[in-house]
Design a protein around this nucleic acid. Structure first.
Lengths: 212, 212
DNA sequence: GTGCGATGTATCGGTCCGATACATCGCGGC
DNA sequence: GCCGCGATGTATCGGACCGATACATCGCAC
């Protein structure tokens, strides 16, 4: 998952580790707390070894000398390679079972702007199926095994069941949008009107994963 | 976390691994998919080595002989020890930062029936604080960084924000319940009346972690 | 009698986390 | 003038947990 997220982000701009973590946190804030450096740096090393990313020269640009002298080992900026872009396209399109768990789905969804419509639909439906299964499991427990469990455990299940039902509805709307119209935004009927002027610029417009 | 969950479950009855996994899945179904055997068995070994749990003789009960002969190595039933109960009480009462992440909170909550009220309150409030922080982070991103992100990413954040707000409300109700009255069930105003005769038997009644 | 799904124990490699360490830079306070 | 401190920045280590895999037994349907 981290691999996919890094390749996706580096496609927008070259970055060094610290920056990458911040962007990752902003983009995936809804689904996970913050990527640990203990995962990030080893993964960067792995991706570099595989040839999917490469060190970009830390451009002094138009800077005068300041030409080292003190050994210089500051930030390491990475950029994605052509092979890396292919790898990203492959990862984003193929759907294993891990594509539908909480984290996997979140990461895939976060890069839907770089995913073609058929794949988007396939992933949304797979996720819906998975959540429906979880929902049925919870209903079973709440129905059949209710008297074996204490009130707190039951309350936890109820809250989980509610979250499942809500997510299924959300997915339904996204799927409907995907099939007919286009804009990824959901109307959100409950919470009054939009809080600002519901910013949906021209729909991201099939940004493809070909080379620019 | 797994350690805490196992200790908690074995306090209800001795069990073997397979059974433990099923119970774990039923009890924690709302917060995680299913515990892997790749975690479960090593953890059982670790707990046994530490003396928190012990192998219970696989009672043939009143069974006639069938006394081995074929080397016999079937299910291994574990039971909790006195030291294990102490360990459980210690783990359940102490709150590190991991107590408030999704999994940690879920496990603690699932054993609230074995937790004293002061600790319950502390954990609920800690969790609320953490979710409020996540919520603020998402609001920031949706407010300030909105134009830098594509429509799908924004929709993901919105959905996450909604989940945060919902969980905060849920926690508020639980906290209020905990402070004044007693029953852990939340009134749930939206979804009509209870689906069955809302089974809250005598409130779990401070089941303490002393020996029975 | 045979295959097949549920029950049951177990290991291995890999991903990711949390703690920790350490170095630099800019800025405000004394 | 200089000192601390928070932000920036790279890096490693042990441990928790997962997913795949292997293998053995039992009961039952076909």
């Amino acid at each position: 998952m981290l691999e996919l997220a890094i390749l996706g982000l580096l496609q927008e701009a070259p970055m060094h580790g610290y920056e990458l973590r911040k962007e990752l946190t902003a983009k995936l804030g809804a689904i996970r707390a913050a990527i640990s450096y203990g995962s990030l740096y080893p993964t960067l090393r792995r991706l570099q070894a595989a040839g999917w990313i490469a060190e970009a020269a830390e451009t002094p640009a138009t800077a005068e000398e300041v030409p080292a002298l003190t050994s210089r080992r500051g930030r390491v900026v990475y950029k994605i390679t052509a092979e890396g872009k292919e790898r990203f396209a492959q990862l984003i399109a193929q759907a294993g079972p891990e594509t539908y768990d909480d984290t996997g789905f979140g990461v895939h969804f976060a890069f839907f702007a770089r995913t073609d419509q058929a794949t988007r639909l396939r992933i949304l439906e797979g996720r819906r199926r998975k959540i429906e299964e979880r929902r049925e499991g919870l209903r079973d427990v709440l129905g059949r095994a209710a008297e074996r469990l204490d009130a707190y455990t039951l309350e936890l299940q109820r809250h989980g069941l509610d979250a499942c039902e809500r997510e299924v509805r959300w997915l339904e709307e996204l799927i409907a949008n995907e099939r007919s119209g286009r804009a990824p935004t959901v109307p959100q009927p409950g919470t009054a009107g939009g809080r600002r002027d519901n910013n949906s610029p021209p729909p991201p417009g099939e940004t493809r994963n070909e080379r620019p």
